[in-house]
Design a protein around this nucleic acid. Structure first.
Lengths: 160, 160
DNA sequence: CGATCAAGTGATATAATGTAACACCGAAAG
DNA sequence: CTTTCGGTGTTACATTATATCACTTGATCG
């Protein structure tokens, strides 16, 4: 348990839940969650911090000598398509999707102290506000990226 | 007039307005808008499309043989600090700030057809929604990035 | 069965984006 | 005048991401 968020839950359980959930989703859609893809998925889930493609690559190399950038990026692309992970644009990093069933692109709370990232529980009010503002410009919304930088609950407590 | 947005306004005027405004801001804050910085600012404003650092570099090289990546990035960093330009995270690109006086970080409407970017007229309702959602997690917001992908008014009209 | 076809992966190279570090210069402050 | 500091020049490098072609394997279909 090295990061703040991990104190509060059984991470091992949390990861295996994620894998079970991912398997269900791939079964349903006919997508192939191969060994490689599953392993990359696990590595993304190894913490609640975002992880970069090259960090994943380093971890993967310990197991597969021949891992290379495309190895990782292809797996990440697959996982993104299946909505099993998210990409955090402002960090060039990836994080497991907390609720792959729901159809929305999440919003993220990025803590600048501990570098942890939480997914917004409900981004619909924000998305609705975005739709309204976009409508003012007669702009048709496809997807929105919401990344919020600040200080998480844990780090605020620490500071106080 | 090559891009959709340019049809609707006098771009030359629009750029020179931006420069005048930038000069005022730098005067007031004591920041030095040097030749180089001003030139990079103009290049960012050369279109209403976002422009990447290396596109700026290529343009700059035509005028200054010795321009190098740091030349551009340093100028961009300065302009960002002065809130004279914005960085679009999802594009790794930069765009002139339409209202540098106001104290907020904007939200952006990115058209996937024409690649143009509009700044949201008023992002406060969205920011307020974000603050409310963040508060649910006891998260203290510093800044939020809002980047919306979709189809702009012009391109919707074209399509119809 | 055997041909073939597509998805997945291996392997190499390279492109695109961004930063570190040190040298130099010139204007402002003492 | 000289010291100092912000801005720039210059080189090298780090990080992030993609293109391309070869190979394998399991699915599909005549």
């Amino acid at each position: 348990m090295t990061d703040a968020i991990s104190h509060n839950h059984n991470h091992h359980q949390c990861v295996s839940d994620a894998i079970v959930s991912a398997e269900k989703i791939c079964d349903r859609s006919g997508a192939r969650l191969t060994d490689l893809r599953r392993r990359v998925f696990e590595l993304v889930w190894s913490g609640h911090k975002p992880i970069t493609a090259y960090e994943i690559l380093d971890l993967l190399k310990a197991e597969r000598r021949n891992a290379a950038p495309p190895t990782v990026y292809r797996a990440l692309d697959f996982l993104l398509e299946q909505h099993l992970i998210h990409r955090i644009e402002s960090l060039n990093a990836f994080i497991g999707c907390a609720k792959p069933d729901e159809d929305h692109r999440g919003g993220f709370l990025i803590c600048k102290e501990c570098k942890g990232v939480e997914e917004l529980r409900d981004s619909r009010p924000i998305r609705d506000a975005i739709k309204r503002e976009a409508a003012e410009s007669n702009f048709l919304v496809t997807t929105s990226m919401i990344e919020v930088l600040g200080v998480c609950a844990n780090c605020r407590t620490m500071a106080a």
